[in-house]
Nucleic acid binder design. Structure first.
Lengths: 107, 107
DNA sequence: GCCTACATATAGACAGCCTACATATAGACT
DNA sequence: AGTCTATATGTAGGCTGTCTATATGTAGGC
């Protein structure tokens, strides 16, 4: 997976994976890998700053928790995050339609 | 259309639009707009540098021509460009499948 | 003369994803 | 005890490609 291709779609991925249940960063990375069948292997240096950014934007709410000795920062979708996710989904459809109509010779 | 979303897909778009016939930059922009039903309106400051980049990479070959007093630089796909286009198409399918599998709740 | 469409090009800003590094706990194996 | 792997979070700095803004010039309509 080319790095640049992800540009601008990271937010949608993070919001989407948090739709059903709150997760912490590491679990999010695993969920992305699992859901994509291994195609998406996003480095920590991408995810953690992105989560912070989304939290600052009010789309996520983060909270520290402890499981044994390990500290985890668990993120959940805010209401604004849920709205943003709907927008991202819509944007994704427009995006694939637009690029697809150029790339796909039969259309 | 969000600017960042295009990242890493510009090459595929440009190669694809040049697949059938050589075109000059301005015509490429119009072709992208037409094929996408107006969704893709790529600024000149994006296209011209990108064409140069693809030419340096050996995927396109550019040639100056004149139509009346107007100078045009017409680009055509090289063999390497045709191969690259096939790779871009394949990458695009992988990409949409991967992202789609995360974004689409029914899958 | 002025405006729009056609046509190309560059400089500099900006954003976000990456690599690499730093830190720390838990558990398995030797 | 020491090592290794998996778990878990985080930052600094680099890279690169898209954008905005600007510049230049021709052709044709009004």
């Amino acid at each position: 997976m080319n790095a640049d291709a992800l540009r601008g779609h990271m937010d949608a991925l993070l919001l989407s994976v948090l739709e059903r249940e709150p997760l912490h960063g590491y679990a999010i990375i695993e969920a992305l890998r699992a859901r994509s069948g291994g195609a998406l292997d996003v480095p920590t240096g991408t995810v953690y700053p992105a989560l912070r950014r989304l939290e600052r934007a009010g789309l996520l709410a983060g909270e520290w928790a402890s499981d044994g000795g390990r500290k985890r920062r668990t993120y959940r979708l805010t209401d604004a995050g849920r709205e943003a996710l709907a927008g991202e989904r819509s944007a994704w459809r427009s995006f694939t339609t637009a690029i697809g109509s150029v790339l796909d010779p039969l259309r």
